[in-house]
């Protein structure tokens, strides 16, 4: 069989297998990981009115994976009457962040400017992270809607990180690393992250050293958080398909290795 044909068969198999699995709407419950439980417990423990900074540091490409995380974490924060200062350090995160915040705020009758605000995007993320340590008003003179930042009710008195309980960076890359390395040591800012599964192992040293408070990683992390929150969402919805995809890949790896070892044995015999 030609290489192209083998490839097409693998592609078609994955497409069909995952698509079929996605049509099955069953709840697959699993225990939350230590990190997800820690994130949930922390948000749960915060007193009403506490200010969280949620930074939408991702591109549209990773939206299917990180949006379930941001949705459930923001829902949790709003349910507990925490206040949110949203922003983005990725140009593409701007509209995503504003829409996500607005959507969830409407579910909980939260008022823009009082319970939450979206500051928008600033280029050169390191400069923005460092700048906000001195003055958020200087980095973001206006919010996303053009209001003067220092006159927005929620922002009055929120001059820098001193008034922010936690930065939650929703990221698909190393933006949270910059939050950890620049806002952490210099301004003693606590950082949590919701990120794509692919980046999880890159953040392990920061978790272990305590520089990063906790992680909610990938669609599985979102599903675990949703279970703790008590309302299943996109994370849980994707779990049957995620399981199917993993099993498919495991089978592919095993078949590939069986063929390899069989060929090696044959070659050994013939030589």
């Amino acid at each position: 069989m030609s290489k192209d044909k083998i490839r097409w068969i693998i592609f078609a198999g994955l497409f069909l297998f995952v698509t079929l699995a996605y049509t099955i709407d069953i709840k697959m419950v699993s225990s939350p990981s230590y990190e997800v439980q820690k994130s949930f417990d922390y948000i749960e423990s915060l007193p009403e009115g506490t200010i969280l900074m949620v930074s939408f540091d991702h591109e549209a490409s990773s939206l299917p994976e990180v949006q379930p995380i941001s949705l459930v974490m923001i829902r949790h924060a709003f349910r507990n009457n925490l206040r949110i200062v949203g922003l983005s350090l990725f140009a593409e995160g701007t509209a995503i962040g504003y829409r996500t915040l607005n959507k969830i705020a409407a579910e909980y009758d939260k008022i823009y400017g009082v319970d939450y605000v979206f500051l928008g995007f600033k280029p050169q993320h390191i400069a923005a992270i460092l700048g906000m340590g001195e003055s958020i008003y200087d980095v973001f003179p206006h919010d996303y809607l053009g209001n003067l930042t220092d006159t927005i009710p929620i922002m009055i008195g929120i001059e820098n990180y001193d008034n922010i309980e936690m930065v939650i960076s929703i990221t698909d890359g190393d933006r949270a690393v910059q939050w950890i390395e620049y806002a952490g040591p210099r301004y003693d800012q606590k950082v949590m992250t919701g990120l794509t599964a692919a980046m999880i192992t890159s953040y392990d040293p920061y978790l272990s050293s305590g520089q990063l408070f906790s992680v909610v990683g990938g669609l599985k992390g979102a599903a675990e958080y949703e279970n703790l929150y008590g309302v299943p969402g996109k994370g849980n919805r994707g779990m049957p398909a995620q399981t199917a995809a993993h099993l498919y890949l495991i089978v592919m790896i095993i078949i590939g290795n069986i063929i390899y070892f069989r060929n090696r044995k044959r070659q050994g015999r013939s030589s």
């Binding site: 549209a60 995809a245 592919m252 790896i253």
Partner: peptide, 29 residues
């Protein structure tokens, strides 16, 4: 942005799922 750019970007990114599957079969020994 929401109807042209974002869906195309996410789809291009999702192509990697197929290439990972193919590469796992062929090269992960």
């Amino acid at each position: 942005f929401e109807n042209l750019l974002a869906p195309m970007q996410a789809t291009v990114f999702s192509l990697l799922a197929f290439f990972v599957a193919s590469a796992s079969f062929r090269g992960f020994r």
